[in-house]
Design a protein around this nucleic acid. Structure first.
Length: 362
DNA sequence: AATCCGTGGCG
DNA sequence: TCGCCAAGGAT
């Protein structure tokens, strides 16, 4: 038995083992049909699956829950969302991040309503053609909502597959190999539950650090665990350092009622379509001592002692915050508006701008 | 192919 | 404090 001498015997991973675990341990999520109900024939609403999958892109379950419920309550079906005002959608999305998702969400709803009779297409290819739906989301919707045998690969699946099959090629080069592994494992029966099972496994047991291998239904089949390298996988290409950009933000407060002057950002790009206070561009060469001279209009601008710091995906931001109280009514600049204290919470303000307003009014 | 796009929680 | 990373997509 040459093989036995060279390698420990490793059981083959089976979809059945994982589905058995999922039947007992599936998390209760607002958008999920419980495994018992799913096997009893209850099918999820594709609109629910789609909405949750868009929100879950690069976003944790904890962050999504309340937004998901709020969206579903306000726009209960794709037709309602298609008819919604984009600014209302952006306001409802504020704080969740990656705002192009909200713009694509609206565009996708319109396309489904207009071109598909209000029903989501059931094939990966047709789903993939819709705005905001890429390879992962198309496969997830096809598998979960339409019972298609699609290989669903997200960050969790990459980690689980890399460990299970001891794939030591660094990401992203390992992606084709990982996809092939997931495709081979995905069963024709219950492909949606299987995909959710692998993702649950990655979220709860096969975690990035300190995986709970003792509790894992695939531990006997895991080549990474047998080799003692599970926790080190998947390998990843080194990341680039984030530069620091600086700028100034101007909180103009109307003395009469404390309203704050806001304006709308350009429709695309960073924080596209969202609201902000007036400010300078953000650059790596910005000189904070020049901030007062860059104010949008003359006023008694006071520099706040501490800048607002915020981390974006690819740069750090340091914003000098300047505040002025305006007794006289200002000729309102184009595309600007006053937002009273009671209205501020409902504005499409991204988190960084909520920090700025807090720094300028606290 | 590499870069751009948010935010919050975790150790 | 800091790096990591989460049910990625568009260009």
């Amino acid at each position: 038995m040459l093989c036995r001498d060279l390698l420990p015997m490793i059981a083959l991973p089976s979809a059945a083992d994982l589905l058995d675990w999922y039947d007992r341990h599936a998390r209760d999520l607002p958008w999920r049909i419980a495994p018992d109900d799913r096997r009893a024939g209850i099918v999820p609403d594709p609109y629910h699956v789609w909405l949750s999958e868009i929100m879950l892109q690069q976003t944790t379950v904890a962050a999504v829950r309340d937004y998901y419920r709020a969206f579903l309550a306000r726009w209960p079906n794709v037709e309602a969302l298609a008819a919604a005002d984009l600014d209302d959608v952006l306001r409802a999305w504020a704080g969740l991040g990656y705002y192009s998702r909200a713009r694509n969400l609206k565009a996708c709803a319109e396309m489904v309503a207009r071109d598909h009779g209000g029903r989501f297409p059931d094939s990966e290819d047709a789903l993939r053609a819709l705005p905001g739906i890429g390879a992962y989301t198309a496969a997830a919707i096809a598998a979960i909502a339409f019972d298609a045998r699609a290989a669903v690969v997200d960050g969790n699946v990459e980690r689980v597959m890399a460990r299970l099959f001891r794939i030591e090629t660094p990401l992203p080069d390992a992606k084709p190999e990982i996809r092939a592994a997931m495709d081979r494992l995905t069963p024709a029966d219950r492909p949606g539950d299987f995909a959710q099972a692998v993702m649950d496994l990655g979220a709860t047991l096969c975690t990035p650090r300190r995986p709970a291998c003792a509790l894992c239904p695939w531990s006997q089949a895991c080549a990474g665990r047998h080799a003692g390298v599970a926790e080190t996988l998947p390998l990843k290409a080194p990341k680039k350092a984030k530069p620091t950009r600086r700028g100034a933000a101007f909180v103009a407060r109307r003395s009469a009622d404390g309203a704050i002057l806001l304006r709308k950002r350009p429709a695309k790009g960073l924080l596209g379509g969202m609201a902000e206070v007036p400010g300078t561009p953000w650059s790596e060469t910005f000189d904070p001592s020049s901030a007062a001279g860059l104010a949008p209009f003359p006023a008694g601008w006071r520099v706040q002692p501490a800048p607002v710091r915020h981390i974006f995906t690819h740069f750090h931001l340091e914003l000098s915050v300047l505040v002025a109280d305006l007794a006289e009514p200002l000729p309102l600049p184009d595309a600007h508006w006053w937002s009273a204290p009671g209205e501020l919470a409902g504005e499409a303000l991204p988190t960084v701008m909520r920090k700025v307003v807090a720094a300028g009014t606290g």
